[in-house]
Amino acid sequence: MMNLKHCTPSDIPQEFLQYDGDIAQMGVGKSGKIGFLELELQNDSDKQKTIITKKQTQVPLYVQKALHYDLDYPSMAHVFILSPSGGILQGDRYRMDVELRNNAISHITTQGATRIYKMESNYATHMVTLNLKDNSYLEFIPEQIIPYKNSRFYQKTNLQIDDSSTVVYSETIVPGRIAMGEMFDFDLCYLKTEGKINDRVQFRDSSLLSPKMQKIQSLAMFDDKTILTSVYILTKKHVTKVNDMINELFSHTQNISGGSSILPNDSGISIRILGNSSEDQKITIYEILKIIRKEILPEYL
């Protein structure tokens, strides 16, 4: 299962195909170039908490045991995705499959930012599938993506739930290593997200950033902001109320611009946040999580 084909998206965008060449160093598919993580979490009624019931990993992706340190939500499993590599290199192919079942409640994040290193040839890809069943709840909130100069990165995310479950997913793109003088110097950063409820597509959303071809800091795109965060809430619970509360939050925030809208068929909420500080973006994400935990999470406790 953990071979190159399994960990490579079947729909590599046209924009990347021009870079689909051989690598002089360690080629695509070699040991260490394929990262794989398969994770299943379920509620353990005897222990009264969510635990990891299945784990399969291939370095450079792995996880440690689930932690239960939140006194407000003692049953919630906190899971940190780790990588010893320090970043994603040319030719890397990563895949994460996470499934929650049986009233599982979890918060998953990464140990640090996802750094996309400079590329002389080829590109890197990352596939993420989050599958929730049986009244489960997941917050998947990774740290920011930092595309270095001349990097090329394609991430494809699939959110799949049944109508009893809720998933909250975020992604943040910064313009590069600002301290090193990089500002939108990467070649391509393409993030594609799809959400399904009961196997029916509710939305598809794509963010294609090609700074050498686009005027990123034009009024139509980022204006005077440099950092983009997208948050997707896929749920059938309290959608209108949560959406109103998030927009109310944005009306009082400083230093960032943001907006929230309801997804088709009242299937959830889509949120965009623009700012100039990754810390401000992160604070805003967790302010949104506070709203979700107040209005939606109690349904799962």
Results as ranks from 00 to 15, higher is better:
residue 227 I to D: 00
residue 236 K to I: 12
residue 269 I to M: 03
residue 207 S to G: 13
residue 258 G to Q: 10
residue 274 L to A: 01
residue 251 S to I: 14
residue 246 I to M: 06
residue 271 I to V: 11
residue 248 E to I: 12
residue 240 T to N: 13
residue 279 E to A: 05
residue 277 S to C: 11
residue 248 E to G: 06
residue 262 I to Q: 02
residue 238 H to T: 14
residue 245 M to T: 06
residue 282 K to C: 02
residue 260 S to G: 10
residue 235 T to S: 05
residue 284 T to R: 00
residue 277 S to W: 02
residue 257 S to L: 10
residue 206 S to L: 12
residue 272 R to G: 03
residue 219 L to Q: 06
residue 252 H to Q: 13
residue 231 V to I: 14
residue 262 I to L: 05
residue 214 Q to M: 06
residue 285 I to S: 03
residue 284 T to V: 15
residue 236 K to S: 07
residue 257 S to E: 07
residue 246 I to C: 13
residue 231 V to R: 00
residue 278 S to G: 10
residue 217 Q to S: 08
residue 209 L to S: 02
residue 277 S to P: 01
residue 220 A to K: 07
residue 276 N to I: 07
residue 278 S to Q: 14
residue 207 S to L: 07
residue 249 L to R: 03
residue 269 I to Q: 03
residue 270 S to N: 12
residue 247 N to L: 10
residue 227 I to L: 04
residue 229 T to Q: 04
residue 221 M to K: 08
residue 274 L to F: 04
residue 227 I to Y: 00
residue 283 I to D: 07
residue 210 S to R: 15
residue 217 Q to R: 15
residue 242 V to F: 06
residue 224 D to N: 15
residue 232 Y to A: 12
residue 264 P to E: 10
residue 251 S to F: 15
residue 204 R to E: 05
residue 216 I to E: 10
residue 208 L to A: 08
residue 246 I to A: 10
residue 258 G to F: 04
residue 245 M to I: 09
residue 279 E to C: 05
residue 243 N to L: 03
residue 211 P to K: 11
residue 204 R to C: 09
residue 255 N to I: 15
residue 235 T to C: 07
residue 279 E to R: 14
residue 223 D to Q: 15
residue 240 T to C: 09
residue 283 I to T: 13
residue 269 I to L: 03
residue 267 S to C: 14
residue 272 R to V: 05
residue 230 S to T: 13
residue 220 A to E: 12
residue 281 Q to G: 03
residue 216 I to P: 02
residue 207 S to A: 09
residue 236 K to V: 14
residue 280 D to S: 04
residue 241 K to V: 10
residue 207 S to N: 15
residue 209 L to Q: 01
residue 225 K to M: 07
residue 258 G to P: 02
residue 285 I to T: 08
residue 223 D to I: 10
residue 208 L to P: 06
